[in-house]
């Protein structure tokens, strides 16, 4: 019995790693053609789905093969039939093809910027809510507001998207000017979405501050504000960073709400209220009709999103949590 239990829990834990590695391998192999084609230049190339005329024949693998064959045949037949010139002309026509290139800069920038806007908007408000719930509000009010916050966290993202598009975006556009669908509106609605998470987790970790620790600060003559600033915040730092990490994860990957609000065009934003696109939205919008290299490029984007999320979260985890200790 003991052994079975141990094995079960061990295999559950292993499953996480298997899944993580499995997803990475799948993404990588599907993205391989695009990676081979565009390399790391993909990340800084702002053109998506752009047709260009390729003149150098060596770029196309199959042409190169044909050329080699043709050359071989030509060499053999050279002395008998002098058709060399004609063949060269034909080859030239074949090699001048139009080719579609894909670059990921616009969605990458869009993803990072919406996330940054969402965090800068949500972080101070979430801290305010958490402090209010944990320290200032009377118990019954804290309870009711706490439930409201948790309900807010449970609203499906598409509802946030619709609400954002029809009610929130016009207000933002009135206030700031520019387009209704833009980086700013997408970022703000994203901020509203991650707000309840951060507030709820931060409140929970603030509530773990031992009462006696707060009492000893009060007993030295500290005010409520000083206790919150000097005792509760440092004490619950780890939980607060945890809440930011979770919120980051959600903000980076959020698709539906952002799809409603970001404008979904592959153009680099020049101002905060310009429309653009994010990685998840690019994938959701283009997967249906994508094939071949386009599909592979979307997988390349997915791989980049995977790596960004992974890097941001491990950075936050290892850097800040180490510091917190």
């Amino acid at each position: 019995m003991e052994k079975i239990f141990q094995k079960l829990s061990l295999s559950s834990a292993t499953l996480v790693f298997v899944l993580l590695i499995g997803i990475f391998i799948t993404l990588y192999s599907a993205a391989k053609p695009a990676i081979d084609e565009f390399g790391l230049h993909f990340i800084i190339n702002p053109d998506w789905n752009k047709e260009i005329v390729v003149e150098t024949p060596s770029l196309r693998a199959d042409t190169v093969a044909n050329d080699a064959e043709d050359d071989a045949i030509a060499d053999e037949d050279d002395m008998i039939l002098d058709e060399d010139d004609d063949e060269m002309l034909l080859d030239d026509e074949d090699d001048t093809v139009t080719k579609t290139i894909y670059g990921g800069l616009v969605p990458i920038v869009g993803t990072l910027l919406t996330t940054i806007i969402a965090l800068t908007f949500a972080l101070p408000i979430a801290m305010g809510i958490a402090v209010f719930l944990a320290e200032i509000a009377p118990k019954n009010i804290s309870y009711v507001v706490g439930i409201a916050i948790e309900l807010l966290a449970a609203i499906p993202s598409i509802i946030f998207g619709m609400w954002g598009l029809y009610y929130f975006a016009p207000i933002v556009a009135d206030l700031v000017g520019g387009y209704q669908v833009s980086l700013l509106t997408a970022g703000l609605v994203l901020g509203v979405m991650i707000l309840p998470f951060m507030a709820a987790i931060t409140r929970d970790s603030m509530n773990t501050t031992p009462a006696v620790l707060k009492e000893s600060a009060y007993a030295l003559g500290a005010t409520k504000f000083e206790v919150i600033k000097d005792i509760i915040f440092p004490y619950s730092k780890v939980g607060i960073i945890g809440s930011i990490i979770l919120a980051l994860g959600r903000a980076l990957g959020e698709t539906m709400a952002v799809a409603f609000l970001i404008g979904s065009i592959f153009v680099l934003p020049k101002a905060i209220n310009d429309p653009t696109i994010s990685i998840p939205v690019a994938m959701a919008n283009n997967f249906g009709e994508a094939s071949g290299l386009g599909e592979s490029a979307l997988f390349y984007l997915a791989l980049i999103l995977f790596i960004i999320s992974f890097a941001v979260i491990s950075l936050a985890k290892f850097y800040f949590l180490k510091k917190a200790k």
Binding site: P210, V212, E215, Y218, L220, G221, D230, I231
Partner: peptide, 21 residues
């Protein structure tokens, strides 16, 4: 006035309560 009182009347608790600093 509370602050003044608590500066005059200090308190030590059952468990040590070092602040996280």
């Amino acid at each position: 006035e509370f602050i003044e009182l608590r500066q005059k009347v200090g308190m030590i608790f059952q468990k040590p309560t070092p602040f996280p600093m």
